[in-house]
Design a protein around this nucleic acid. Structure first.
Lengths: 170, 170
DNA sequence: TATTGTTATACTCTATAACTATA
DNA sequence: TATAGTTATAGAGTATAACAATA
């Protein structure tokens, strides 16, 4: 008889891929994004998109849902549930729009500003953890190189400055 | 009467975010991943995950679906539809497993190898486009820094070498 | 009894298209 | 007639649990 069977072992990647900036960027970006999402969830119970809207509101108060959604590349129907959730948490509020009674003027509450501050701290902690393997010089170098790539991406018409592309469909 | 109304204008991001490696990585990684996906789709009609499985098969032939899925972090039920799709395209085949009649030995076909080669060319083209804004030295620098971060990520137990984390849930 | 592949089901997320009230 | 917000419906993608064949 044959000896007791063990489950099929997974094949080991020999790693026969030539070093690629594109692959590493995509791979690392995905991991970092997940880690950031976990940190925000743990620290303030915010989803990445909720964090994104709060960040935008800190810069631009009193705009309509449509205007906000246009910047974030989020369609109107999804803006409803997004604003609903944050309003239910008491972090933002729908006030009457001064010039248009169809629209809401969306703005941060005091609790929302506080939550945003806490969220930023959590984000900085992730930033520090991510960059831990790098020296200060290396981090500055990397920051410069990534900024250059992001700049080129923008000039090709890819995305909105400071807005994560995953806001639109993630 | 009031003058004709124009739609609410979207707020402009002032960009008040401190420069962050984590944010830039996540943002750029997302964009690059999308671009890579489009390129593969256009060149060979492959989804990113299909490309990932073909790449793995090029390194490790004749393994069971479960073993492959374990490496790629793809659960068995999704492996079925993934293998189905590629088999329907004629790029891989399910052969009888030499030691286990429950399992299939999954392997590349000649057409699969050809498709993989074409896909790699498309990927290299994206790599070149992404890195266009950088000098040769800068690209080497960036490659080194990203590799360092990826290495640290691996040592923290995050992921499988050479396997994109988006394979598991994307 | 455990494992390979498969299928069925429910659940989440998203996109499309309507609908209301205002302009 | 067009816009802001909302709702309803259907579709894609995923996870969970069961299933038949084989070990």
């Amino acid at each position: 008889m044959t000896p007791p069977r063990q489950p099929h072992r997974p094949p080991v990647r020999t790693g026969g891929i030539p070093p690629s900036v594109a692959f590493l960027l995509s791979q690392l970006g995905f991991e970092v994004g997940k880690e950031m999402g976990r940190a925000l969830e743990d620290a303030v119970g915010l989803e990445p998109r909720q964090f994104g809207l709060l960040r935008l509101l800190a810069d631009a108060e009193g705009h309509s849902q449509r205007a906000l959604g246009e910047t974030l590349r989020i369609p109107p129907n999804r803006m409803v549930t997004l604003v609903d959730a944050l309003e239910r948490k008491g972090l933002i509020e729908r006030r009457t729009h001064p010039e248009d009674r169809r629209a809401y003027a969306v703005s941060l509450t005091a609790a929302g500003s506080a939550a945003l501050e806490t969220a930023f701290k959590a984000a900085f902690a992730v930033e520090a953890e991510i960059c831990a393997p790098l020296s200060a010089e290396e981090r500055t170098q990397l920051l410069g190189l990534l900024t250059k790539l992001a700049q080129a991406q923008l000039e090709r018409g890819g995305g909105v400055p400071g807005v994560h592309p995953g806001m639109s469909t993630a």
